[in-house]
Design a protein around this nucleic acid. Sequence first.
DNA 1: CCTTGGTGTGAGCAGGATAT
DNA 2: ATATCCTGCTCACACCAAGG
Length: 230
Amino acid sequence: MTRPRSRRGGGRPTIADVARKAGVGAITVSRALREPGRVSEDLRRQIQAAVDELGYVPDPNARALASARAEVFGVLVPSLTNNVFAEVVRGIYDSLSDSPFRIQLGNTHYSGLEEERLLQVFAPQRPAALIVAGIDQTPMSRKLLETAGCPVVQVMETGPDPVDMLVGFSHFDGGRAATEHLIEMGYRRIGFIGARMDPRSQRRLAGYRAAMEAAGLFDSRLVTTTPLLS
DNA sequence: CCTTGGTGTGAGCAGGATAT
DNA sequence: ATATCCTGCTCACACCAAGG
């Protein structure tokens, strides 16, 4: 006696059902849906009719299983309440709104070790891409990013040695440019206030300091910072 | 060349087989 | 009786082969 087919959801159609109905192979259905240009017009219509009739929607889990790639962007930011990163996350959501990709969000709380721990969770899930903040990853995180087998984007900053892609600006140059601008305007006692001095804040401070020293104006009493809590 | 089909892939699951 | 292991199956895709 054959045991009943126990398909999830009580009979949601599979690609094989569509293929049977359309009278083609499963792979032709897959191609018709993913790369329509590679299937003849007639077959495409035939397959689309079967898809519509059955209400077929590809199973994202099976797709991830077979492609060894989930339609997920892993996004790690240091903070969800800091407006800067809230904007970054919003931008990523906006960019992906018309795509099949979903976002898996992680909050590192400015901790390299937490970033590393999250990457150990995210990377084995074979995301379509990984987005991390900054360029100051731990050696283990760096290794995880390099071996993730997907595009990696480091945002918020530039640097000489990207894992893959960099989108950002030089915080050192930014700090220096802002300071030089104030110096050119004639100010002499220019202070620097920095809270929770993550590596990017430290580079902005270094840029500030470089400009102040170049002008012979640096005075450590004009600098107030609070340390990065971990 | 273009289109189509066959085969292997691998994590997770259900259910059967075997061990304790 | 319970625990553990094993087997078959699922799913969409990449790769390669074959037909027209």
